[in-house]
């Protein structure tokens, strides 16, 4: 039956096209807004990342045309003594840095929280090294560690502990730990501030309740502070962990350049040497991707472990 009047008018009424509905949708507006960031991400992260994967499977020297060699770069790594040593140093670096930054960071955070007089001064002082450039830090600590005129050995002399004097950056047995100490010193303020923020967000009445329940200062720390600070501990651990693996190039290069005799060599400094001194860019790229995979696997494992602990506490 033919329709007429208002029914026909309704059917003939203008309907927006699919394209105009798309353009007017919230999703389109959001996509347009994030487009610049997406382009930047693609240009400066995604494209180099995937291009680097390709390079790691070539023998590119930076000048000639790269030739595809499959996984040969990766298989060569497992017999490369210097690379394996650098990886071992990385693991030692990560282990001590994560422990020291968290333990000392929490301790300093607790002290800063209790600080009465001079609180602003102490907070600024502890954060100052974080703002210093790696070059300045390296120069400063090179002088402190200098075996002849350095401050550290001078203090040991002054306090009658000359027997402990060492060539802090020249002795292969201690150089790595000397570099670790500098890294911890530089970043301690950063982690302390995060811990301080976490401590200040803890509910005070819970502590009052614990005092009334008979908890000593140690009990309150062990049974209240640490469990409630778990999310902050997780954050600091992840930050310290990732930093120790992939952001230690500067401090090592400025202080020791990986020496003496590769004693402080880490994967990133080895990569740089292979890429720009030896002209083996493809091989250096393979190193980078192996480090990336190790960090991803360990990070995921750490996150899963921490998630389980957080649920249990």
């Amino acid at each position: 039956m033919a329709r007429s009047g208002p029914e026909q008018a309704n059917e003939d009424a203008w309907q927006p096209s699919r394209l105009s509905r798309l353009i007017e949708s919230d999703g389109f507006a959001a996509a347009v807004m994030i487009l610049p960031a997406t382009l930047l991400l693609g240009t400066f992260f995604l494209w180099p990342f995937f291009y680097g994967v390709w390079l790691s499977m070539t023998n590119w020297d930076g000048f000639s045309q790269p030739a595809f060699i499959g996984l040969r770069n990766f298989t060569r790594l497992w017999s490369d003594r210097i690379f394996l040593g650098a990886l071992e140093n990385n693991v030692i670096f990560v282990f001590w840095v994560v422990i020291l930054k968290n333990v000392l960071g929490l301790a300093v955070g607790l002290l800063l929280q209790r600080a009465g007089v001079g609180r602003a001064f102490f907070r600024a002082s502890i954060f100052l090294p974080v703002t210093m450039s790696f070059v300045a830090v390296g120069l400063l600590w090179s002088w402190i560690y200098n075996p002849i005129f350095g401050l550290l050995n001078a203090v040991l002399d002054f306090t009658g502990m000359s027997g402990l004097k060492l060539s802090w950056l020249g002795d292969a047995n201690v150089a790595l730990y000397s570099v670790i100490a500098v890294d911890v010193w530089k970043w301690l303020g950063f982690h302390s501030v995060i811990y301080l923020a976490g401590l200040q967000a803890l509910p005070t009445e819970v502590y009052d309740s614990a005092r009334i329940d008979g908890a000593s200062a140690w009990h309150r720390f062990r049974y209240i502070t640490v469990p409630l600070m778990m999310p902050v501990i997780f954050i600091n651990t992840i930050l310290a962990f990732s930093g120790a693996f992939v952001r230690n190039f500067d401090i090592v290069y400025v202080l020791t350049k990986g020496g003496p005799n590769h004693a402080t060599e880490v994967v990133l400094t080895d990569m740089m040497n292979r890429a720009f001194s030896d002209g083996a860019i493809g091989y250096a790229a393979a190193m980078g991707y192996v480090l990336f995979l190790i960090v991803v696997v360990l990070s995921v494992g750490l996150l899963m472990l921490m998630r389980r602990w957080r649920l249990e506490v």
């Binding site: 009445e205 819970v206 005092r211 009334i212 329940d213 049974y223 409630l228």
Partner: peptide, 30 residues
Amino acid sequence: LPPKRRDIAMVFQSYALYPHMTVARNMAFS
């Protein structure tokens, strides 16, 4: 005298329960 030696117990406005402990552990803590 510190609170734990006064033999008193307190109920707070915000309850002040230990958020990471179960009800049983909250009650057993002291």
